[in-house]
Amino acid sequence: MTHTQKRIIINDIVMALSTLSALIGMGFLFWILSVLIINGIDALSMSIFLNEGAPPGNSDGGLKHALIGQLYLVGYASFFGIPLGVLAGTYLSEYSQKSKVAEIIRDISDIMMSAPSIVIGAFVYAVVVAPFGHFSGWAGTIALSIIMLPIILRTTDDMLQLVPSTLREAAFALGAPKYKVIVQVVYRGAKAGILTGILLGVARVAGETAPLLFTSFNDNFLNTDMSQPMASLTVTMYNYATSPYEDWQKLGWAAAFILSMFILTLNILGRVFLLKKRGKR
């Protein structure tokens, strides 16, 4: 066997193995999605969006409380997490560059990103829930913001650093002060990337359950008071899906379906922004 023949064979084997692995991965993905879609769509109905939770056996229970609670939690978390993350990322990339402090912040963010979210939930439980004596929407918001922060911070940092320094220099060379260079030129150049980071960050926290169990906990009825326990799709789904009641399980499927579609949309949007940006270059 010649050298070339050997290489071709090895190439074929590696190709076959990687194709197979990809197919297995895709297989599971589509299995999960199809089970979710079949059960989810079956459980969907108008009353789900209009009614609050009801005791089991009561056929008109809905998810309104969880949907609105989820919006409050994720909305407030984004309200705090996005600006903080973008500003902190800007500080790292534009103001501190390669300083020691910047490197430490980057390392800490990386660690925080891979920290199990339940740990962050436990932390917020200790510093917010325990001192106040009860679960609350604010506590959930804080936990979600903390989870979101490093994701947005690091993507912003990375995306800003991808903007060529000559672009900054060109703006400075026209007599632009630093904040204008950043806001008017650098942000524009990194817009798609930063937006993707934001969407991925929001998508990530939208699917969190563990930290909410420790913080906002749950409520079977509609509550918009952030200082009180608050329902979320994830925790509601967990409660309903693990309950022995069939109608609750059905609501659990509906919650899972709605949540997955929401997160899927965010992720796809994020990809689209990135692709659009690449397409332009």
Binding site: T166, E169, A170, A171, A173, L174, G175, R188
Partner: peptide, 28 residues
């Protein structure tokens, strides 16, 4: 800032800002 308005610079690689043609020229 004043100095750089009076002494302009053109770089080796074109440095068009990510904005419209008009806005690029209007920037300064």
């Amino acid at each position: 800032i004043k100095l750089r308005i009076q002494i302009g610079m053109i770089f080796q690689k074109p440095t068009a800002f990510p904005m419209s043609i008009f806005d690029n020229v209007a920037y300064g």
